[in-house]
Write a protein that binds this DNA or RNA. Structure first.
Lengths: 211, 211
DNA sequence: TGTACATCAGTGAACGCGCGTTCACTGATGTAC
DNA sequence: TGTACATCAGTGAACGCGCGTTCACTGATGTAC
């Protein structure tokens, strides 16, 4: 059979495309509220399918939310991977990390906003899934930090504490970036977090864990 | 007229009591979701009034939300006042601040949870009101920090940056405390933030602003 | 290659229900004289 | 103090609408032979 650019989709391909459309419609529709305030019918309408067709793809808005947690954390892990790469290559770990953060938040506003909102206001199961994912990120970052600091001055516990602090600051910064649209305000947010991380780094360089 | 314990309420008193009941019912009903997912009828049912009676007290769920922002930030300012008092009196500023935080979050779980959720997932006007209030808190804290550090080593800008960092860490800690019910987990959260603040303080003591 | 049957994404009608808001009302409380 | 009237928090019926979910269905795609 001759392959052409306008090959008709298989049934599986079409289904996947509708599923994708549902995920995208949901991210758009709950972009300034929580999944709890979103109805299945709103999603179906936005996608252009009849409400009952929704059930061919997800059991409920809640299980759709769990799928979105997974793909949102793929974006967040992309960010962490870039931070790690910048930390190895670049001259300045602070600037490199902030650049990666800003870049990824801009590129996937939808995913980062979704995590920020559902983390505190989503359905219970979605909140739980997000908390587990964040803890995973903290542990992963702690492992990376161990390689950077050496194990002489830092206990594993303190590494996790520091990792959690970094994550807090990054989450908070991401939330601030998401809540502004003015460029000059964003630049100020970035300048602020840059200084904050530098203050923090001074403490980090001097720190010796109690044993 | 002789005052007795069972004096009949005036019309104004009764109205105030219903208003209070509406505010309390709302805090309870949206304790694990956003105002956007809450209906006027649910609130009325919980209070024990007919749905239309709601309008005698508030225009909409949204304006009710703005009233709750005000009273929630009264609780948050109480916390800040206690932190300030502990900072003056106590031996250790870190322990004192954390004690005050934990105490206030426990006492007004409803208010702190409300701020945490509506800050990111509430109606636009409510989010705006919360952001303004948080900025006010940061500025107030920056003024206090100026008195503690002296103005020789710190610019006003850096004081605000540091203040914002403290607020970020406190907000993040409050959110973690709110999302757990297990005592041992809470103790770990507290131990973590204690170490985080100590790391940060090392940086703070060494910091000299660029001029 | 052609045919007969199976699969299944999406349809459309129907259900009972809770929604926000309107309206005219009731009756206890408050006020003016 | 007593009376006549005003105020207003709360009532209850009614409205049109969107909700989640059920069910039997359609018709294009996929598969077995």
């Amino acid at each position: 059979m001759i392959e052409t650019g306008t090959e008709p989709e298989s049934r599986a391909e079409r289904k996947l495309r509708t599923r994708r459309a549902i995920l995208d419609a949901t991210l758009e529709l709950c972009s300034d509220s929580s999944l709890n305030a979103l109805s299945l019918r709103q999603v179906a309408k936005q996608v252009g399918i009849v409400p009952t067709a929704f059930y061919r793809h997800f059991d409920s808005i809640e299980s759709l939310g769990l799928a979105l947690v997974e793909e949102s954390f793929d974006s967040l892990r992309d960010l962490f991977r870039d931070v790690r790469r910048n930390a190895r290559a670049d001259e300045d770990i602070v600037d490199g990390s902030i650049d990666a953060l800003v870049d990824h938040v801009h590129r996937r506003r939808d995913h980062f906003g979704f995590i920020a909102r559902e983390r505190v206001a989503g359905p219970r199961s979605v909140r739980g899934a997000i908390h587990r994912e964040i803890e995973l990120c903290e542990r992963e970052l702690a492992t990376d930090l161990a390689l950077m600091t050496g194990t002489d001055a830092w206990t594993g516990k303190d590494l996790h504490v520091l990792s959690a602090l970094f994550v807090s600051v990054l989450v908070s910064t991401a939330e601030q970036i998401l809540s502004t649209t003015r460029v000059e305000q964003e630049e100020q947010i970035i300048a602020t977090v840059r200084t904050q991380l530098r203050m923090l780094l001074i403490g980090v360089y001097q720190w010796r864990s109690e044993r």
